[in-house]
Amino acid sequence: MNKIFVIFFLVLEVFFAKPIAINTIPIKKGYLQQQENFVGNVIFKEVANIASQSNGAVEKVYFRLGQHVKKGEKLLSLNDEFLQKDIIIKQAKLDQARYILEKKKKDLERYKNLLETQSIPLQQYENIEYEVKSQEASILALQTELDISILDLGHKEIYAPFDGVIVDQKVHHGEWISSGEVICQILNTKDVEVVADVPSFMTNHLVLGQAVNATINNKTYKGKIVAIIPKADVNSRNFPVYISINGDNMLLDGMPATIKLNVDRKNSGFLIPRDSIVQRNGKAVVFIVKDKKAILVEVDVLSVNRNQALVQGNMQENQKIVLRGQDKLEDGSEVREIP
């Protein structure tokens, strides 16, 4: 008896069910640029080996492996105690040489007056003149040596040349390093490219600067083509295409990336809103309206862009396709169109 009541109420529920509210739009025939997907890899364009420009013992390391650093951030400092004392000595020698030059110039002026009165021979005057010029040359050499030491002092601290991530550490506290020795390796995470191999027929449809979207780890990045290499891979016979993208800290070197490239030919079919397509049992379907009922139609998606999709399926031009509300529909559901 209870089963009879349940069936009765289910029949009443179906019979008196309210039509589902939907929005529709007419189906049109047309063309859409075909797109092809190509798989590539994320690469970081700039990987820099940061080297020391000075000799010395490592006094302090300010970075760690895997750390994100900013441009101008201090990475390492070398002990500069010996260099500081060397600069003091060179500055003292330079000051001494300037005092000697000042004295010799005064002597030269006095000898000049004596020469005019023929109180001294010409050779004696020329000797003191030579000593002045020699002292001036010595001062120039001492000043240059001091400048080099001061410049070297500035190299005792090493800074990051750009924003990036430390991917390798070569030195540690207390170690002695020589000029030119690598202290670490920095990966520039902002300057990112995707490289994908494309067949030869596609290269005719690509130009430098062309906008390209790349999907990486379910996120879409905007980019542009920066290089088309005219040398094929010996195995695949495809040509590398480089796409520069605006990266972020979520990207890793070597990540797979999918890029969409326009193909020259256009396909014909039914142009429908991209949002009208839903997935049912792993298949792309749409709902068209006929006699106030929603009819499920399987479609083959030929191409898509931002707003539209080009499909083929059992439908006709000017039939109404469900634009909104299709998520609640089943094949044969009663519907009510609203503006």
Score class of each variant (00 low, 15 high):
residue 1 M to S: 12
residue 5 F to W: 12
residue 7 I to Q: 15
residue 8 F to A: 15
residue 8 F to L: 15
residue 11 V to H: 06
residue 18 K to G: 03
residue 20 I to D: 03
residue 20 I to Q: 09
residue 22 I to K: 04
residue 23 N to S: 10
residue 25 I to A: 06
residue 39 V to L: 15
residue 43 I to Q: 15
residue 45 K to F: 06
residue 50 I to D: 10
residue 57 A to E: 13
residue 60 K to D: 12
residue 60 K to G: 05
residue 62 Y to F: 15
residue 64 R to G: 13
residue 65 L to P: 11
residue 66 G to S: 08
residue 70 K to D: 11
residue 76 L to G: 05
residue 80 D to S: 10
residue 83 L to R: 01
residue 85 K to A: 11
residue 94 L to H: 06
residue 95 D to C: 05
residue 106 K to H: 11
residue 107 D to H: 09
residue 107 D to W: 04
residue 112 K to M: 12
residue 115 L to H: 09
residue 118 Q to P: 03
residue 120 I to R: 02
residue 128 I to Y: 07
residue 129 E to C: 01
residue 131 E to Q: 11
residue 133 K to M: 08
residue 140 L to F: 12
residue 140 L to H: 13
residue 146 L to T: 05
residue 147 D to V: 03
residue 149 S to C: 00
residue 150 I to A: 04
residue 153 L to Y: 00
residue 153 L to G: 00
residue 170 K to R: 15
residue 172 H to A: 14
residue 173 H to A: 09
residue 174 G to I: 02
residue 177 I to R: 10
residue 180 G to A: 02
residue 186 I to Y: 01
residue 196 A to G: 00
residue 201 F to W: 14
residue 207 V to A: 10
residue 211 A to Q: 13
residue 211 A to C: 02
residue 213 N to Y: 10
residue 217 N to V: 05
residue 220 T to E: 13
residue 227 A to F: 04
residue 231 K to R: 09
residue 232 A to L: 04
residue 241 V to S: 04
residue 243 I to K: 01
residue 244 S to Y: 08
residue 245 I to N: 03
residue 246 N to H: 11
residue 247 G to D: 01
residue 247 G to C: 02
residue 249 N to Y: 10
residue 249 N to C: 04
residue 249 N to A: 12
residue 256 P to H: 04
residue 257 A to L: 01
residue 264 D to S: 14
residue 266 K to L: 09
residue 267 N to E: 13
residue 267 N to I: 06
residue 268 S to Q: 12
residue 270 F to E: 06
residue 273 P to N: 07
residue 278 V to I: 15
residue 287 F to G: 00
residue 289 V to A: 08
residue 292 K to M: 13
residue 294 A to K: 01
residue 297 V to N: 09
residue 300 D to P: 03
residue 300 D to Y: 06
residue 307 N to H: 12
residue 308 Q to L: 15
residue 311 V to E: 00
residue 313 G to N: 05
residue 316 Q to P: 05
residue 318 N to V: 01
residue 323 L to T: 03
